[in-house]
């Protein structure tokens, strides 16, 4: 495995059996084609990391937050250049690739921790949901804003949230599109620990150092037993996303979002 890597959108480093993946693509780690390529590279490393690592920590080194989700600007511009018949195949290809990465992180034998702060929206929230534990800075906010654009989350968010939480919480997040703060998120079982401002990574590292003391095979077996990957729902989510994407309201919503000069573009 590659024990350290510094890319355009992310970096990773293995140190004392803890693999740390840092996101650092401005403005707020939006996931587009470059991030996806590097996440695929990371997934290959993660698959080979079992012998040398016990814990994975995913975090953002940018001040704005963990991740603002999919790169909607890139998505919009890319799809604008395609004929209608080419849109869904291109979209499906992107979604299947990101799902493969998310599924690999979700099912990794390592114990995984998302150390989040600030904006943890859409695809960023979905990335955090692949992890076994979420450690949140007290200023973190979680949100699925996709319905505001006429869409549903497309990177595996609903099936994972449904697996981990009560259906009422899933409906609240999904159907209102409102954001939860860290305290609310901990109250409903989403967040494992809350850190003081700027301290989430430190807390994640402290937790990781405890986790590295456990027998790796036992921890991996326990995780496999308790955390099934909802493959059927994940496939249905891709189908639903592609079906909804062709509605005229989506193109209009994306256009409005991308061209918005509003002071509150996170509320399209």
């Amino acid at each position: 495995m590659i024990s350290s890597y510094k890319g355009r959108t992310l970096s990773w480093e293995l140190k004392e059996r803890v693999l740390e993946l840092a996101l650092h693509r401005g403005p707020c780690n939006e996931i587009g084609s470059h991030t996806l390529e590097e996440l695929e590279k990371f997934a290959t490393t993660l698959e080979a990391a079992g012998d040398q690592a016990s814990v994975l920590i995913v975090y953002s080194s940018l001040q704005c937050g963990f991740c603002a989700g999919a790169d909607l600007r890139e998505l919009y511009l890319r799809l604008q250049g395609l004929a209608r018949a080419e849109v869904v195949p291109a979209l499906r290809d992107f979604l299947e690739r990101i799902h493969r990465v998310m599924n690999l992180i979700d099912a990794s034998p390592l114990t995984t921790i998302a150390a989040v702060h600030g904006v943890t929206f859409g695809g960023g929230f979905e990335l955090a949901l692949t992890c076994d534990l979420i450690i949140a800075d007290k200023m973190a906010r979680f949100c699925f804003p996709e319905l505001r654009l006429g869409l549903v989350p497309g990177f595996g968010g609903i099936p994972r949230l449904k697996r981990d939480m009560g259906n009422a919480v899933v409906r609240d997040l999904l159907l209102t599109g409102r954001s939860f703060n860290a305290v609310k998120s901990q109250q409903c079982g989403l967040v494992s620990q809350i850190a003081a401002e700027g301290e989430a990574l430190k807390l994640a590292r402290a937790t990781a150092s405890q986790l590295t003391k456990f027998d790796r095979q036992t921890a991996a077996a326990a995780k496999k037993f308790i955390k099934p990957i909802p493959h059927d729902d994940l496939r249905r989510e891709i189908d639903l996303f592609c079906e909804l994407f062709l509605q005229p309201a989506v193109a209009a919503g994306l256009k409005r979002f991308v061209e918005s000069k509003d002071a509150q573009p996170y509320l399209p």
Binding site: C28, G65, L267
Partner: peptide, 24 residues
């Protein structure tokens, strides 16, 4: 807008309330 979210979180913490984004 991101700093406005930060303000929203601080207000929620200060007043111990939840403020759904759509209300703002």
């Amino acid at each position: 807008s991101l700093q406005a979210l930060d303000l929203l979180t601080r207000l929620e913490q200060h007043f111990h309330v939840e403020l759904p984004d759509y209300e703002l």
